[in-house]
């Protein structure tokens, strides 16, 4: 098990490095002109050269990749117009449009996104799985049809409509804002409630259907009949025997969903004015802030790889037949 995890981590690191190098190539070797974009329309050749040098764009690409990786590992120093800027490890570069080290920007944005996504996940997992189980047990009844219909309806309308409904009708919620968790957990949760509710409701719709389908399949299994034949309560049959098995495929979907949401919660962040990772990378995209974009790619690939690893490890806990090796 331990060897398996170590091997997976090693392969995860190599995946991240390959992603990094590939995106580095795309961004920096592509026929674009980052220095020119940063410099703007009224650009003097001196300023252009200065920007090129500070971004190390005048060096060979291989050298640039090497510098970047070195910066990640041990930190590096940027020189801009004679001034030296220290960038401590893990150095993700320096954002010239914001004038800040990228690591610091990511460090500010990541907790916001993680807070939004994990809180939202709690909401949609609880609502979605419970609703799915209830619908599966009442399969074919009006309640079941109502739940499936509502779920399809929520999925059919654009995400921002859900957000709009939450902000229009859930006016009793505290004003949406980010306060660090460690300062005051209550204000932290309060400021994120609206975002959690939006993300939670929108995704609960899908999870209702996943868990309904998984539960219906599980409840038809022979071992559920065996459980009933023992004379245990129906509640125990459904939740201990049924849900226990039905949850495994949901865990797979959840792992992937979580990774996607962590890198793509732009809608939620933007609509509720929470400056998370999505907002940061979107701004970087518009302003051609390459170091920030690169960091976005890096964080995204790390998140994806880590989530996959976690799902695989979770699988061995959920299903005793799965043995890693």
């Amino acid at each position: 098990m331990l060897i398996y995890i170590l091997r997976r981590i090693a392969s995860a690191v190599s995946v991240v490095i390959v992603t990094l190098v590939a995106s580095f190539g795309l961004f920096f070797v592509a026929p674009t002109d980052p220095a020119g974009t940063i410099c703007g329309q009224r650009c003097t050749p001196e300023r252009y050269a200065d920007i090129s040098a500070s971004l190390n764009l005048d060096e060979p690409v291989v050298q640039q990749v090497g510098d970047y990786l070195k910066g990640l590992a041990v930190g590096r120093t940027y020189h801009s117009g004679g001034a030296a800027i220290d960038c401590d490890a893990p150095c993700l570069g320096y954002s010239y449009t914001l004038g800040q080290p990228v690591t610091k920007l990511i460090g500010q944005a990541l907790p916001i996104t993680v807070s939004i996504v994990l809180g939202g996940a709690v909401v949609y997992l609880i609502i979605g799985i419970l609703a799915g189980v209830v619908a599966a047990r009442r399969r074919g009844t009006y309640l079941d049809r109502l739940m499936v219909g509502t779920s399809l309806g929520i999925n059919a309308v654009p995400y921002f409509v859900v957000a709009l409904l939450v902000s229009l009708y859930a006016t009793f919620l505290p004003h949406s804002a980010y306060h660090p968790l460690l300062e005051n957990p209550l204000t932290w949760a309060g400021g994120l409630l609206a975002a959690w509710l939006t993300l939670g409701l929108a995704n609960a719709a899908s999870y209702t259907r996943y868990s309904r389908a998984s539960m219906i399949e599980t409840l038809g299994e022979d071992y559920i009949r065996t459980a009933r034949a023992k004379g245990i309560s129906e509640r125990r049959v459904v939740y201990r025997h049924g849900l226990r098995a039905a949850i495994t495929p949901i865990a797979t979907i959840f792992g992937v969903d979580l990774a996607i949401q962590l890198t793509g919660a732009i809608f939620t962040e933007a609509m509720f004015g929470l400056p998370g990772l999505g907002v940061l990378t979107l701004r970087a995209f518009n302003q051609y802030d390459l170091p920030v974009l690169m960091a976005g790619v890096l964080v995204g690939s790390v998140v994806l790889v880590v989530m996959n690893l976690l799902v695989d490890i979770l699988y061995t806990i959920l299903d005793p037949r799965v043995r890693l090796g």
């Binding site: 022979d222 065996t226 023992k230 004379g231 245990i232 299903d319 005793p320």
Partner: peptide
């Protein structure tokens, strides 16, 4: 019915592979 099921009358099924819960 539930109180009597498994106590007065018990049942064994065709396929023990699928009739036992794989996770317990």
């Amino acid at each position: 019915l539930r109180k009597r099921r498994g106590a007065n009358a018990a049942m064994i099924f065709q396929d023990p592979q699928s009739s036992l819960h794989p996770y317990f």
